[in-house]
Each structure stands twice: as C-alpha cells, then as structure tokens.
Write a protein that binds this DNA or RNA. Structure first.
Lengths: 157, 157
DNA sequence: TCGATTCAGTCAACCAAGCTGTCTAGACTC
DNA sequence: GAGTCTAGACAGCTTGGTTGACTGAATCGA
C-alpha cells in the first residue's frame, strides 16, 4: 500500500511542528518567552558577522523593515545590544549579549534533548536514517521561516 | 557525530517546504492558481460531510469567519457551490463542483508524483522507513496549517 | 572637490490570513 | 410564547511580513 504524497508532506510538517511546539514551550519555561526561530537565526547570523540590519536582511532573506522589527524585539528583550558604528555612522552594529548567548545555548540544548527523546522512541539508527534520507534529498535548510510555501499561497506569478 | 535537534527540525520543515513549493507550482501549472492546503482540506471536509461553514470551522479548527473567507474563495473560483438549506434556512450547504473534484484529483496526483520522485532518488524502502519513523513518533497530521508553532510565536501564555 | 550614486535605516501604509466581539435571524426546547 | 442555541455576517484588531518614499551618510568619478 503506497502512501500518498500529501500524507508525506503532512508528516514532515507535523514532525516539524511537534518539535517546534515543544521547543517553544520549553524555551518559555526556561524564561525565554515569545522566541521564534527567526530570533535564533538572527542571533546566529549576528554571531556569524552579519551584525547590521542590512546584512541581516540579506542573510535572512527578509526585508530591512522586518529585520528592524525583529532586532527591536531582541534589543528590548536584552538579547542583543546595538550601537552606532563609528566608522560609518549610518550603521548600527549589533552584538549578542550574555543573555543572548544564554538563549542560543539553551535553545540548542532544548532541541537536542527533544531529538534525544525521539531517538529513544524510534531508535537512534532510525532517526539518523531519517536525517540522512532528508539530507540526501538535498533538502536545504530554509532561510525564510514564515510562509511555508504551500501554506501561504506563495504562487509564483 | 550526533546531529543537532535544531537541524532535525529544519530538515523536516525543509522537506515539507520542498514538497509544498513544488506542489503549488505544479498545481498552478495545471491551472489551479493560489491554491493552499486549507483549500484542499476544506474540499475534503466538504466531501466528508462537513458541508456547512460551521461544520467546516469545527473540522478545520479555525473560526467560522476564516472559513467564510476560504469558502468564498472556493466559491468564486468555482470549486464549490453553495445554496441555502431548505430545511434550515440559516445554513448554506456546500457541494464540491466538478472543477473541485478535478482539483482534488490533480492535487493527489501531483503530490504522489513528487513522492515518487523522492522514492526514485533515495529508494522506496528508505522513504517508507522515513514515513514509518515519523508515524511511529505519533506525529499527528496537523489540522491547523498556518502558524506552525515555533514559527509564529504561539507561546502558551 | 563637487555632484551623482549607492547604501543604512526609518516611516507610513498596506496585505494576508487569521482572530474576537457583536449582531441578526432562524430553529429548537420547555 | 420566552429563552436559548445555532448559522452566518460585519466590523475591526493582530501578527509578521510587504512595498514605496524618504533622510542622511559614505563613496565613486570626472
């Protein structure tokens, strides 16, 4: 009995959602409320050197305005600090605060634990095979996190 | 080298997105533009007997208002037809039109083909194992399609 | 060196797909 | 027949993005 392609898609989405939901809950329980992946991504990008709004926009594939909002959140929540670049006063350069580092660390930990729990349930080998399969399919890690395609009517006009 | 939980989440999302994106494109190419999963879901639900706005809302887990918009789209695009229930004139009962059936059929076909293509690339056995693994994890097919948890800041206050 | 262009960032307005809250009106229930 | 429940609609809000117009700083080039 061959399974349907639609079910496959939903399984994948369901899997992601299960992890995501649990992760958000755990993070909130650790005191990191209202954290979305884009925040974590932004922190990673900043750590990776994309430390201005424009650079982040390029890296995250969203507009500068969207970045501005995201970074404003991160700044008011104390995850990043921004100050004007002395060499180029147009720019504000962001650095990840201690609390920001904590968030990144905790996030990693939380998701690793969730993965471990999965491994326990279906076996480490099977989980690794699942990851290998997806990797082999050339699944590229999405840079844009919102609007998962099919969901949000992103038809290419 | 153990992989990270975050990567696993992104692989799953990436997998879904790859299918979803390709599916949307294919559907658009077949003349079904701006179709989102919720549309397909709604059609299935109507076929399954949830043929009023309220019933659809319950089934899809969204509000009546959201259903109203969805159904309005489906109706103007000719996928469903609605007419007032004679027994209960408050209600409009929806039926799936021929075009609606075509869409459902084509959608299935498109996604099955995408799945076949994956099977060719990584092997049918491996793909089935992937599906089995996810199924074993008790991944439940998401009823709500938008706001995939971690993405949309659905923190449980 | 001055003018043109590019680039960083902000503001305002908009969009999409949901949401809540309020309402009308038809249908059951006693 | 009164009260309650249900179907559906309308208005307006929310979230997380978008576009477009703009200011002001930096850089390029004749």
């Amino acid at each position: 009995m061959p399974r349907s392609g639609a079910d496959l898609a939903l399984l994948l989405l369901g899997g992601f959602r299960a992890l995501a939901e649990a992760g958000t809950v755990e993070l909130a329980a650790h005191g990191y409320a209202r954290i979305r992946p884009v925040h974590d991504f932004a922190l990673h990008s900043i750590l990776g050197g994309a430390d201005t709004a424009s650079a982040l926009a390029r890296e995250l594939g969203i507009t500068k305005q969207a970045v501005a909002k995201t970074v404003a959140f991160l700044e008011t929540e104390g995850y990043v600090a921004g100050e004007t670049d002395e060499r180029d006063t147009r720019r504000r350069r962001f650095t990840v605060t201690e609390r920001g580092h904590d968030l990144v660390r905790t996030g990693q930990q939380v998701f690793d634990e969730l993965r471990d729990r999965w491994a326990e349930r279906i076996g480490a080998a099977e989980l690794e095979q699942l990851e290998t399969a997806l990797t082999e399919l050339g699944i590229q890690v999405p840079t844009r996190l919102d609007a998962p395609g099919w969901l949000s009517g992103s038809s290419p006009d």
